Amino acid sequence: MTTSAAPTAKPAVVKDPSLFKDLGGLPVIQKVVADFVALMLADDRIKHTFRDTDLKRLDKTLVEQFCDLSGGGCIYTGDPMKEVHQGLQLTNAHFNALVEDLQLAMDKSDIPSHVQNRLLALLAPMQRDTVTR
């Protein structure tokens, strides 16, 4: 008798929820995202890149993304970064401005720099998918 092996499922990535806790949990992530979006929209260096953006969806998916990456148990429902940023002609200067705005938003919520750096380290690889020139 021949048995066929079931396809092996990719193991789920187990995330360390300590970053989520250190960030202050969902209420603080939601506040950081609200402040972050406000800063981006006021930032002359990058505000033009959000001209055609559904801001309500942006807010929702950023909360999901930060919560997911930090081990908070959320599921990111947004599109892949490469797809979202395709055609925007973003530069490293745009990416750096965005990071600065995120740091300001986290500062506003009194998140310690060593905790900020842990989140930024998880976000940094996304630069490859967003910067296109």
Rank of each mutant, 00 (worst) to 15 (best):
residue 128 R to W: 08
residue 40 M to C: 15
residue 122 L to W: 07
residue 75 I to T: 11
residue 92 N to C: 04
residue 2 T to S: 13
residue 38 A to H: 09
residue 20 F to W: 14
residue 75 I to P: 01
residue 108 K to E: 11
residue 98 L to F: 12
residue 108 K to I: 01
residue 74 C to N: 01
residue 97 A to M: 02
residue 10 K to I: 14
residue 13 V to I: 15
residue 56 K to Q: 15
residue 109 S to K: 01
residue 123 L to Y: 02
residue 90 L to R: 02
residue 23 L to A: 08
residue 7 P to G: 05
residue 94 H to F: 14
residue 10 K to N: 12
residue 85 H to Q: 09
residue 100 E to K: 06
residue 78 G to H: 04
residue 96 N to P: 01
residue 63 V to T: 02
residue 59 D to V: 05
residue 106 M to I: 09
residue 13 V to L: 14
residue 119 L to A: 02
residue 65 Q to C: 04
residue 57 R to T: 13
residue 99 V to L: 01
residue 125 P to L: 14
residue 94 H to S: 07
residue 79 D to G: 04
residue 74 C to M: 07
residue 3 T to M: 12
residue 85 H to K: 12
residue 51 R to F: 15
residue 80 P to C: 03
residue 11 P to M: 13
residue 85 H to T: 12
residue 104 L to P: 03
residue 92 N to F: 04
residue 19 L to S: 05
residue 43 D to C: 13
residue 130 T to P: 06
residue 66 F to I: 11
residue 107 D to A: 05
residue 5 A to M: 11
residue 79 D to N: 10
residue 90 L to C: 02
residue 123 L to K: 00
residue 112 P to C: 13
residue 78 G to F: 02
residue 99 V to D: 01
residue 127 Q to F: 05
residue 121 A to H: 10
residue 48 H to K: 13
residue 8 T to H: 09
residue 51 R to G: 12
residue 34 A to V: 06
residue 110 D to L: 11
residue 46 I to Q: 05
residue 29 I to D: 02
residue 107 D to I: 06
residue 25 G to W: 14
residue 103 Q to D: 03
residue 56 K to E: 14
residue 127 Q to M: 06
residue 17 P to F: 02
residue 101 D to K: 07
residue 28 V to Q: 04
residue 6 A to W: 04
residue 24 G to F: 14
residue 58 L to I: 09
residue 66 F to P: 04
residue 70 S to L: 12
residue 75 I to L: 08
residue 51 R to V: 15
residue 99 V to H: 02
residue 113 S to E: 12
residue 21 K to R: 14
residue 47 K to M: 14
residue 16 D to M: 12
residue 90 L to P: 00
residue 38 A to E: 15
residue 60 K to A: 05
residue 33 V to Y: 00
residue 49 T to F: 14
residue 4 S to H: 10
residue 61 T to L: 07
residue 31 K to R: 06
residue 89 Q to A: 14
residue 47 K to G: 10
residue 19 L to I: 09
residue 57 R to Y: 08
residue 7 P to I: 01
residue 79 D to Q: 13
residue 47 K to S: 14
residue 91 T to A: 08
residue 99 V to C: 00
residue 39 L to V: 00
residue 104 L to W: 03
residue 29 I to Q: 03
residue 95 F to G: 01
residue 113 S to C: 04
residue 68 D to N: 06
residue 125 P to C: 13
residue 35 D to M: 04
residue 52 D to Y: 14
residue 49 T to E: 07
residue 26 L to A: 11
residue 40 M to P: 09
residue 73 G to E: 10
residue 96 N to K: 11
residue 80 P to L: 05
residue 43 D to V: 12
residue 48 H to T: 13
residue 32 V to E: 05
residue 95 F to E: 02
residue 117 N to I: 11
residue 39 L to P: 03
residue 88 L to D: 00
residue 22 D to E: 12
residue 39 L to Y: 02
residue 120 L to Q: 00
residue 81 M to N: 09
residue 27 P to M: 12
residue 71 G to K: 03
residue 31 K to V: 12
